[in-house]
Nucleic acid binder design. Structure first.
Lengths: 120, 120
DNA sequence: CTCTTTTGACTACGTTTGTAGTCGATACTC
DNA sequence: GAGTATCGACTACAAACGTAGTCAAAAGAG
């Protein structure tokens, strides 16, 4: 089940607010993404076809909610990305991120905690 | 300059062995990727159009080499990926990777070294 | 020299993706 | 109740993608 970048925007909205309709999705879309409502409905329809969303009738419209967990999808996507771009090695990826956007002190602290856990 | 997954396979070969021709690329492609030579040439042609590869005549054929550095491309792709999938937060990504594929002891050591550097 | 192979240039073509439009039915506004 | 907004279902359509085919010229095989 591959989710395209445009579709992912929809998924992100629905992971944050499951059980809303198409017009609420339109409202909730971040910043510049002022897609036409038709566009949103097309993307939602494709996600339903793919089995990534479930529908629930609500009067004459549908409410949508993710059929897959965000964490599961993120994990699969992360693995695929690292495999393709970095031959499966995570460290170079983190190095690039550090360089590209400057990890915040919080990020660094979190990573340290994580590494501490992993070593056990 | 967006590079598609199929094109990235080509780039990876050329980053490892810059200055080879289409048939050498075919030979060098990893494992299952036994693409038709036409397919490879199409992909190479598109990469040249996009400015991702430079050409150098060699007799009646061309040798190709990347016009962009692997590191630069990785960095941009990593940033874009983390932005899209994790709202820009690197730590959850690393957590998923750790979970999904079990970071090796080497990976962990490398990340620790990296974090040590970052804290300075 | 003739046949086969290889190369670049150009073309092909189904599928996926982004971005909507049309249509008929229902709901909401006055 | 008549006009307008909204919904789902279906359709449209160009660009990008994956995967290759055709063609003419040049190079290599015998």
């Amino acid at each position: 089940m591959q989710i395209t970048p445009a579709e992912l925007e929809i998924m992100n909205v629905l992971w944050d607010q499951p059980g809303i309709g198409a017009s609420e999705i339109a409202d909730a879309l971040e910043g510049g993404k002022d897609w036409n409502i038709r566009t949103i409905k097309t993307l939602v329809g494709r996600l339903v076809e793919k089995g990534a969303l479930t529908t629930e009738p609500d009067g004459r419209r549908y409410l949508y909610r993710p059929a897959i967990r965000r964490g599961d999808y993120q994990k699969k996507a992360a693995k695929q990305f690292v495999d393709r771009m970095f031959g499966g090695r995570a460290a170079p990826l983190v190095a690039h991120l550090a360089d590209a956007r400057g990890l915040s002190a919080d990020d660094i602290a979190e990573l340290e905690r994580l590494l501490g856990d992993l070593k056990k």
